[in-house]
């Protein structure tokens, strides 16, 4: 069931429970709380350090793979990501994750993600969260582009029986 047909049913039913009826797999509360924390992290980086909390850019900067010189502050931000996940994993009964089984998929996806995020100057965090909330024209265009491309990719993979 696609989002458009579903939207009309949501409006007709007119309350939040309808969403969980339609999408039993959805986690709106966890999503919202996690999203607020991600926004808070972006705010700390912006107002504290004066930079965009963009993971791809900071990762490249931390590894010296950017045109700017390596920057220890970027490395600290990047190191914080697994530490934060570890903290949540320790306080809860683990972080559920279903990865693709094929290493070939992981490798090809990783390669184009690295290449594409550097070429397009950002990813979901830098463009999608920090840039879109700034109403940056570049980031809005980039976000529409990677979302559309991601949706087409999933649809094509499913059409050829490669879903997982």
């Amino acid at each position: 069931m696609g989002p458009t047909s579903v939207l009309s049913k949501l409006v007709l039913k007119g309350h939040g429970d309808a969403m969980l009826d339609l999408f039993p797999q959805a986690q709106p509360v966890q999503g919202l709380i996690g999203g607020v924390l991600i926004g808070l992290a972006g705010a700390i980086m912006l107002l504290g350090v004066g930079r965009i909390a963009g993971v791809s850019g900071l990762a490249a900067r931390a590894l010296g793979l950017s045109s700017s010189p390596p920057w220890p502050t970027a490395a600290l931000f990047i190191a914080g990501l697994p530490l934060g996940a570890l903290l949540v994993a320790g306080l809860t009964d683990g972080i559920p994750a279903r990865f693709p089984q094929s290493n070939a998929i992981l490798i090809v996806a990783g390669l184009v993600t690295g290449l594409g995020t550097r070429m397009g100057s950002g990813c979901t965090s830098g463009h999608g969260v920090c840039g879109v909330s700034r109403l940056s024209r570049r980031s809005i265009v980039a976000t529409v582009s990677f979302m559309a491309s991601g949706m087409v990719t999933v649809a094509l993979v499913n059409a050829f029986g490669g879903g997982w």
């Binding site: 697994p82 990865f99 992981l106 996806a109 594409g116 397009g120 491309s149």
Partner: peptide
């Protein structure tokens, strides 16, 4: 900008991973 983002979207759709969650998952 548009081409790079589109390329990234292909990777995102293939594996369901973007840079932040991928790095956080290392732990």
């Amino acid at each position: 900008l548009v081409g790079g983002a589109a390329l990234f979207g292909i990777g995102w759709g293939l594996a369901g991973l973007c840079p932040g969650p991928a790095i956080a998952s290392l732990a």
